[in-house]
């Protein structure tokens, strides 16, 4: 329970520190910002190493196996693992009795992972200027792979399926009323005109003059209306997030958290007031 209370105090302090930025840049905000950047960088680094590199790379190159069952190439291959185990016992473990060797998990061995391993090592060559150029191969691989992987997805979902969604009939439906039909046709026309004129705005090799200029202008109006709607959604989202933070601050203001929000808010206001009376010193903190 006491850990919970401490957590509540830290959360309330960091939330109020970030909010203090709305007043002006100050030591509380700076502290919260540096903690945020530092903690998250370490978190992502650790996560990438233990969730990605260890199980997905090392785990596939040297999956856990019974030492006595190794044969052929694997005998020599796992000798290399022995060397790595010597470097780090936690990353490259061997069971205490020495019978199980390899990265624990349910992976099966896949030696093609040696290629990503080599490309990864190439990235580290940046630290040695004379062979640093090798890292470009790794970058080229990532860029090329991404282009290929995305080409199909974009063409299918963002081009073909969107064309499918835009090709709509302009029709009079007997089941709808007169005004219902008018509304329906109007909606269809808005979609078709919006897509075509919007696409037209993004024609670069043609001068936007005369009729083309008008169509392009209609396109930009459509874009602006959609941006307006987006902006509305963004305001809605930001208010939702603010509500979430306030809800937590209200919770930390209760007696079970020893009125953390009130106490911290008071301390911060007083500190900021004192610092504001010494502007030169404050800016150097």
């Amino acid at each position: 329970m006491s850990v919970n209370i401490l957590g509540g105090w830290i959360a309330a302090f960091l939330t109020l520190s970030i909010f203090s930025y709305l007043y002006k840049d100050n030591p509380f905000y700076k502290m919260a910002e540096h903690i945020f950047v530092g903690v998250s960088a370490a978190y992502w680094g650790t996560l990438a190493f233990w969730n990605q590199i260890v199980p997905n790379l090392f785990g596939r190159l040297w999956p856990a196996a019974e030492y006595s069952s190794l044969e052929g190439f694997n005998v020599a291959w796992y000798k290399l693992y022995h060397g790595l185990h010597f470097l780090s016992r936690s990353i490259f473990p061997i069971s205490e009795d020495g019978t199980i060797i390899g990265i624990p998990g349910d992976q099966t061995q896949n030696l093609t992972y040696i290629f990503p391993f080599i490309l990864g090592v190439f990235m580290l060559f940046r630290l040695i200027p004379s062979i640093g150029w090798l890292s470009r191969w790794s970058l080229a691989y990532v860029v090329g792979l991404a282009a290929g992987l995305r080409m199909y997805g974009y063409m299918n979902s963002n081009v073909l399926a969107q064309m499918y969604g835009t090709i709509l009939p302009i029709e009079w439906l007997p089941e709808l009323s007169f005004f219902g039909n008018l509304g329906n046709i109007f909606n269809t026309l808005v979609i078709i005109v919006g897509v075509l004129s919007g696409l037209f705005y993004f024609f670069f090799s043609m001068e936007h003059k005369g009729v083309f200029g008008t169509v392009s202008r209609i396109g930009i109006y459509f874009l602006m209306v959609s941006f307006g709607a987006s902006f509305g959604f963004a305001v809605m989202g930001r208010i939702s997030l603010l509500i979430g933070r306030f809800n937590d601050l209200i919770e930390y203001a209760h007696s079970q958290y020893y009125f953390a929000t009130f106490i911290l808010l008071g301390v911060m206001i007083v500190t900021l007031y004192v610092l504001s009376r010494k502007p030169d010193e404050a800016s150097e903190v």
Partner: peptide, 20 residues
């Protein structure tokens, strides 16, 4: 220079750079 992978921590870091 690298700051962090985290979206909002990165935003906070860049904001700090801008302000200072």
């Amino acid at each position: 220079h690298y700051l962090t992978d985290d979206q909002f921590a990165f935003a906070a870091g860049v904001d700090g750079i801008m302000l200072r």
